[in-house]
Every structure is written in structure tokens, then in C-alpha cells.
Amino acid sequence: MKKTIMTSVLLGLAASSFAELSVDEIVNKANTAAYYAGKDGRAEVEMNIIDKSGSTRTRKFALLRMNTEGGSQKFYVYFKEPADLYKQVFLVWKEVAEGKDDSRWMWLPALNLKRSIAPGDKRTSFVGSDFVYEDVSGRNLNEDTHELVETTGTQYVVKNTPKKPGDVEFSTYTVKIDKDTFLPRAAEYFDKNGKLYRTVEATKVETIQGFPTVTESVVKDLNTGGSTVNTFNNIEYNIGLDENIFTERFLRRPPREVTK
């Protein structure tokens, strides 16, 4: 009995200290947990794109990520399957400074060609999946205003409203963030009429090298009935990547970190 009281006191204290966090602190911690674990990292990703009839297309790629100065990041995605994407590379230089756009490129090996992706295409489907380009590297926190709409026993619920509604297809989205790990666990996107049309869910979380990590995520498009499941394997953090990898030189010559 005494133990139970002690536990609830501790929990109560913990909860009250969480409650003191501002919404900006919450989204910052969530952003860090979701995208900034370690100095850098690597994962193997299997992406299954399932249409409403149940037919599945599979993409396999290796993903490298590195944190650079001032919260900026670089991402390198090397495709292994299917055959028509083999050896293609998707490269992102993510910028967090106000007024700076992310840069994105696709490397097309058969043409020996680096093709830029226009900034306006960030909400375009990533290789035919229900994820968009922006999902790969994370949406800049400065793009939205954030409002803490609910605090449950285990989660914060944050409502996000774009500052430039014309740039995106949603009117708002809400994110449920776990209190203990600060990992975003579920997001719901509402269209311009306020109708829920898209959900993203972290369906599996594991702790890897001390970092709580999403190892399976599912996005559903409620309009088309399609969904995409991402499974992350062989995740490693702090592998000591060289920033040069994220340049044209290594588009022409994918590094062993992704090809092995």
C-alpha cells in the first residue's frame, strides 16, 4: 500500500514536470527523438506499397543520415530494389534555418545524371509510396504553428497548422507524442474540408544503442485505400560517417556504407 502511494507520488511528480513543458519544447524534443538520434546513423529499409486491391510493390534501400551544423542534416538513400530503381540515389540536404529550403536530388545512373527535385515537390509521393519526400527527412518545425491540444496519461497531442497553407495539401495535422520517449507515435492529417484523409503510425519501437527507435511505420491514404509499410533493419548509430559522402562525388560512386 505504502509502495503504491510512493509510486503514484513519483508518477504525479513526473507528470507535473512534463506538464510544465511548453509546446515548443515538446515538439523540439519529439523532433530530436524522431530524426536526430546519435551523430549519424544507418538503416536498411524495406518499403511495401499496398494498393486497395492488396497488390504489393516493394522498394528496398539503405539510408544514411548525418547531423551537421546548427541542426541541419544530410540524408543519403541508395536503392537496391526494384530493378528499375537499382543504383538510384536520393540525396537530401535538410536546412532548418528560417527562409532556407531543403535541397533534394535524384541520381539516375543509366543517364549518369543528377536531377534536382523542385522545392515545391516536397509533398509529392516518394517513389510511388504513400510517404512524401518531406517524410524522409522530416518537416521543418518552423513551417507550422504548434498547439498542445491534449495531454493524456502517456501522450501529448499536438495540433500543427501550416504557416503557408497554399504550400501543402492538408489544413492541419495532429501528432501523438509518447511522454516517456518523446517519439511521435501517430499523426492524423486533415484536408482543407477538415476531413481525416491520411494517417501515419509508428507501429514498432525498439531501443537501439540506447535510442528509442521506430522500426516499423505505416502510412495510410484513406482516400485511395492504399497504405505503405516501412520496416527498418540493421539500424546503427554513431558509425562515424564522412560528410563528403553526401556530395555528387558519392552519387557517382555509392559508398560501401550503403552498398554492402
Binding site: D101, S103, S116, A118, P119, G120
Partner: peptide, 9 residues
Amino acid sequence: VQGALGSGL
């Protein structure tokens, strides 16, 4: 020279 301009390239 090439780069981003507005939402395009």
C-alpha cells in the same frame, strides 16, 4: 548555373 527559385527550379 542552376538552383531553386520559388517552388521551382
